[in-house]
């Protein structure tokens, strides 16, 4: 148990309000929660990478950061135009 792990757990515990945002209410409200979730999970993954002392894992938050941009645009556009 090192301090980085505690920090990661603290960041990841912010997922509970995000779960509330994502799982209840209108689609727009859920989309806001989803964007927050991807930010928090990216941060949590970076901190867990340092906590586990495994540098190759850093590819994962990098992927999520890149994919979440496209994901956000896709969701926003489909909600706007087609749905």
């Amino acid at each position: 148990m090192n301090w980085w792990l505690w920090a990661g757990i603290a960041v990841a515990s912010c997922l509970i309000p995000c779960a509330d945002m994502c799982l209840r209410g209108s689609p727009e409200r859920r989309l806001v929660g989803l964007e927050m979730t991807s930010i928090i999970i990216t941060l949590a993954m970076v901190i867990f990478t340092i906590a586990f002392e495994r540098i190759p894992f850093i590819d994962l938050p990098l992927t999520l950061a890149i994919m979440s941009f496209g994901g956000a645009l896709v969701f926003a556009r489909f909600l706007e135009h087609h749905l």
Binding site: A12, L15, C18, A19, C22, L23, G25, S26, P27, R30, L31, G33, L34, T37, S38, I41, A44, M45, L60, L64, G71, F75, L79, L83
Partner: peptide, 16 residues
């Protein structure tokens, strides 16, 4: 439509 976004959240949570 709401379910799609919930599914995306579920996928991210599984990834973590």
């Amino acid at each position: 439509t709401s379910q799609v976004i919930a599914l995306s959240f579920y996928g991210l949570l599984m990834a973590l």
